[in-house]
Design a protein around this nucleic acid. Sequence first.
DNA 1: ACACCCGTTAAGAAATTGTTACGGTCCGCA
DNA 2: TGCGGACCGTAACAATTTCTTAACGGGTGT
Lengths: 225, 225
Amino acid sequence: MVKKTILVVDDEKDLLDLIDYNLKKEGFNVLKAENGEEGIERAKEFHPDLVLMDIMMPKMDGMEAVEKMRKDDELKSTPIIFLTARSDEKTEVEGLNKGGDDYITKPISTTKLISRIKAVLRRFDETEEEVNRLEVHDLTIDKDRYIVQRGDEEFQLPRKEFELLYYLASRKGKVRDRQTLLNKVWGDNIYVVDRTVDVHVRKIREKLGDHYIETVKGVGYRFKE
Amino acid sequence: MVKKTILVVDDEKDLLDLIDYNLKKEGFNVLKAENGEEGIERAKEFHPDLVLMDIMMPKMDGMEAVEKMRKDDELKSTPIIFLTARSDEKTEVEGLNKGGDDYITKPISTTKLISRIKAVLRRFDETEEEVNRLEVHDLTIDKDRYIVQRGDEEFQLPRKEFELLYYLASRKGKVRDRQTLLNKVWGDNIYVVDRTVDVHVRKIREKLGDHYIETVKGVGYRFKE
DNA sequence: ACACCCGTTAAGAAATTGTTACGGTCCGCA
DNA sequence: TGCGGACCGTAACAATTTCTTAACGGGTGT
C-alpha cells in the first residue's frame, strides 16, 4: 500500500514534532507547516491526502486557511481534521464541515488522533472510489447524491432529467440524436416517442437555464463545451 | 463506575503479590497467573480490561503469550502493558506494539505502574468510544448503546430502524436504493420486499422528524447533508 | 405557401412513495 | 404455559411526483 501524506499545520513547534513523530511511526509521510499561509503553500505543492489543521494560529488562522483551500479546485476535496482548544470553536468548525472532515479537541491523545485520521481516510477512500461526480462549467453533477450544484444553489432534478443531463454532460460537446438518448437514458427496448426528450430538455433548461444544453437542428442535443 | 479487571502475569511470586496488593488498593479487580499458558487461560475465561505481562517467564514466555492473544478474536484488542527487565527487550516489544499498548521496565515503581495502567485504560476507552459513534447534524447516533440523542432527548429506536438510520447517516449525502439498503442493513441473502424499507423510514421520521432522511424519487433514500 | 423540425404547454397515465392496518414472531414475565 | 407488548414484514389504498403524449405554434429553408 502507498503511504499516505499528511500535512500538519500548527504553530506550537513541540506539538508539531510530537505529532510528526507519531504519524511517522504509523507509516505516514508527514509535512509540517507553522501557520496557515505556509500550510496552503505546502498543500498546493504536495497535495496531501489529509490535513491536520490547528484553528488558532498567528499570521493566518486555521479557519481562514481552510476557506482558501475550499476555494481552490485542487484542494477543495482534501479532507481536513481540525484541532481545537476550546469546545465553542467546535460550533464554528461544524459550519465549515464538508464531506469527511472531523475535528478533535486539544489536549490530544495520540491514539485517538491516529484512529480519527484512519477513520477519515477510510471514509474518504470509500467516497473517492466511485467518483460519480462531474464538474462542467459552473455545475457539479453528483450522481452519488443525485444533486446538481451551482455555487450555493442545489437542484434536485427528477430522475430522468438528471440522468439525461448527466449523460449529455459526460459527453460534453458531442451531439446525440434523440434515439441515442432514449437508448442510453431510457433503456434499450423501450417504446417512447422521441418528442419526450424535448420535454425533458426543456424542463432541465427551465431549472438550470438555457445555456447548458444546445440544440443542433436536424440532429439532436449537445452539452455546451 | 465499574471496576476494571487487570490480569497480571509474572513468574516472580513476590512481585505478583506486591502488584496485586497495590492494584487492589487502587480499586481494580486483579487476576494472577504465573506463566504465559496460565495467563492465556485466565484471559480467555475472564476477559480482563488490561493485561500486565512479564516478558521473561518459564513455560511460555510473554512474547509468545501475546502473539497467541493477538490471534484470538476475543482477546486481540485487549491492551497489554509489558514488564521488561532489560532495555534491549524494549525494542522487541515495540515490534509487537498495537493500539494502546505500553511497556514498563523493572524495577517497577508502584506509582508509575499505576499511572501507566490508568493512562492505557483511558486511551483505550477513548478509542473504543470513537468507533461506533456518529455525529450528524444535531444527532448523536451511538451504536454501542443503540441510542440516538438530540440535545437532551434520547431516542430508543428498534434495531432495524436504528441500523437503517446508522447506515444512511454514515454515508451522509449519498443516495442508496432500496435493494442496497436491504443488503447492507438486512443482510445479503434475505428475502424481504423492498417496500419494507419505506415503512422503516417512515417510523424513523415519525420519531426523529422528517428532516433527516430525504427521498429521492426513482432512486432511493439519502441522509440529508 | 409548404414541409419539416423544434419549443412549449397542458393534461392524463404511469410510476413511485406515503400511510395505515394487520398478522406473525419472539421474548420477557407472571 | 399463557399473556402482553415490541418489533417486523406485508398488503392495500391514498397521495404525490414524474413521465409521456398530443396538440398547437413558430421558425426556417425550399
